[in-house]
Design a binder for these strands. Structure first.
Lengths: 343, 343
DNA sequence: AGGCTCATCGAAAAGGGTTTCGAGCACTTT
DNA sequence: AAAGTGCTCGAAACCCTTTTCGATGAGCCT
């Protein structure tokens, strides 16, 4: 089964346009790019010819000359991770329907491959690079001798000389507790994921601080294990056994929260009447399908991607000293039925 | 907070290398690319110089000359969709740690924006384009006068002159039923999503055909509505009211299956002992966290992405007539505890 | 010694566009 | 009539690499 059509040829070059219009290369270029020094009648002739031939300028040639390609590289270590995608969308968004295109590279968590991709991107003369990790744990820097600006998103760089943008997990942890308190809860427990993750530790610290600030104490220890629903179910069962008095459970992820909801349901506890539950990440497929729908913390990742892109935009091309350090971007509370009863 | 380091300059050009090595541009190029006609001693001198200067060839210049860029465009209409990502990974994978880089463009479902991105990709002289949709419903073709090969992935093109790769949903539907029958079930119902989706219709047809082939009939009508957990819960409740005899439920998505599992649990039915449940899509976060873990159909999307890339590879550069038509790629059964009791 | 081959190297063009700068020309001014 | 002014346009350089093909020189044969 073949179409038989080999392929349309690439459209005309500027040279063709110039010939058809009966002018020189230089004049054709100026006419098309709207530079001065070309009579209105000539411009029209050139534009007509370009239109007829379907001319579009070859970006390769243009970039080669200009020294800027209007491309950026997005270097990620884990594409399947759900954190990369919103960031990627935000970046694409900020660069806009505009002129910038994004090269996507997935290093699959392999350092060698990352170096390889980096080199490939530089050989293609990208104007900037966004490095996206899948955890909020600091990652090794690409180093300071990269000839284009680099910004680290989600996973900050270990090197303070780099610019990193990462969600403020500590503020998120505080937000969990503050919201529960504002719902009138005082007997709060915290079930979270793998203690080896900075995200787990940072959120737990936020939880602790907000409780302390309100003169409260956590009911039970922070329960660390992994980020699964199963752990949420098991942890909730243990928790209710040892601390049946709890009236709110702050969870370190939406998956954990889903598990917690299941156990509460099995044990006949009403949510949110008896126990309020709050998740983290605002992963829609989990939050909006839960019974009841799950209140959660959204890390504003798309916003983070936009910021990263905007930053690159600002410093691309300039040779000024670049901003450095790690910026913690605000997160956002999304309230649903698991903390506030629907009327 | 500034690093103070403005940016390392771009590395040396071939000209610099030639000068340092004391040879001509041509010789330097030949030495570096391993072409013949250059004395071993000279080659060493050039390579040393290149090493010292950190020379890497400018791909722009190279591409401009060669007429091939070793880049492809990936044009998607919906990045957040979970179908795009595995396909993207498969494509990245097939192009390999090799030479090809991927431009990612998200049209956000907007036709104008898609045209715009297409033009931008062509101006950058990509060697090929992969179009990825978020549904299996056929989508409008980009047309036949695109100067590079195009392959449609997941969402096939409406135009049979294009090459499309899409998962075989009908076979998947049959597989649902065949597996349930092989588990000894005969009283089978089907709950699925939005009837406006080709995926829902194709899978339902597969379910119907496989039942007919086994001399069985569906218990109740096919239940269409939407792809949510909530619908799964509600539909299962209705189903068990009207057809309490069912011993298996084939679901059109994992979300629906999760809802079905919840209702069965609420009603005290054992899974899989009383009722077997099977999902579709093999969305890991849903399947492996379910109680019991959910048997499902995997569309092999990563494989599909690889195939798409491989196809582009094959026809890129050649001017032969291109293969056309829609190819339905095999799907795969992933067995877990919701259909077969764990020992 | 002259003519030959062979290995090695470099000049130049090509790829497609942008930009600088000088040339040509019509028209005005003194 | 000579000089000056202002507007159009084109030649050529440039970006960086690859490739062709002709030039150079050394070594060998008769």
């Amino acid at each position: 089964m073949h179409s038989g059509q080999p392929a349309a040829p690439y459209p005309a070059t500027l040279n063709d346009v110039a010939k058809v219009a009966g002018v020189s290369l230089a004049t054709a270029s100026k006419a098309i790019n709207g530079r001065g020094d070309v009579a209105e009648s000539t411009r029209k002739r050139v534009l007509d010819a370009a239109e007829r031939l379907g001319f579009t300028p070859n970006q390769l040639a243009r970039s080669l000359l200009a020294g800027r390609t209007h491309t950026v590289g997005l270097l990620t270590s884990d594409l399947e991770g759900r954190f990369v995608i919103p960031i990627l969308m935000g970046a694409e968004d900020a660069f806009g329907a505009g002129q910038v295109n994004v090269f996507l590279c997935d290093a699959r968590g392999d350092n060698i491959r990352e170096q390889h991709h980096l080199k490939a991107l530089l050989n293609r003369r990208v104007d900037g690079i966004i490095v996206v990790g899948r955890q909020t744990d600091p990652r090794p820097s690409l180093g300071q001798n990269v000839p284009v600006p680099v910004v680290y998103a989600y996973a900050p760089s270990e090197d303070p000389a780099d610019l990193s943008l990462t969600p403020d997990n500590e503020a998120g942890g505080r937000m969990l507790v503050e919201h529960l308190i504002s719902c009138g809860r005082t007997r709060i427990a915290h079930i979270t994921g793998d203690p080896a993750y900075a995200a787990a530790q940072d959120r737990a610290r936020g939880v602790h601080d907000a409780l302390a600030a309100a003169g409260l104490e956590l009911h039970g220890e922070v329960m660390f294990s992994d980020w699964s629903e199963r752990w949420g179910r098991d942890a909730a069962a243990m928790l209710l056994e040892q601390h049946p008095e709890v009236d709110a459970i702050a969870c370190g992820s939406d998956q954990i929260a889903r598990g917690v909801l299941d156990t509460l349901r099995d044990l006949g506890r009403q949510v949110p009447e008896d126990v309020a539950v709050i998740g983290y990440d605002n992963w829609e497929v989990l939050t909006t399908n839960a019974r009841p729908e799950l209140t959660s913390i959204d890390a504003n990742l798309q916003q983070l991607g936009r910021e990263a892109a905007r930053h690159l935009f600002k410093v691309m091309g300039t040779s000024e000293p670049r901003p450095a350090g790690t910026r913690y971007l605000p997160v956002r509370l999304v309230i649903r039925g698991s903390t506030i009863a629907r009327r």
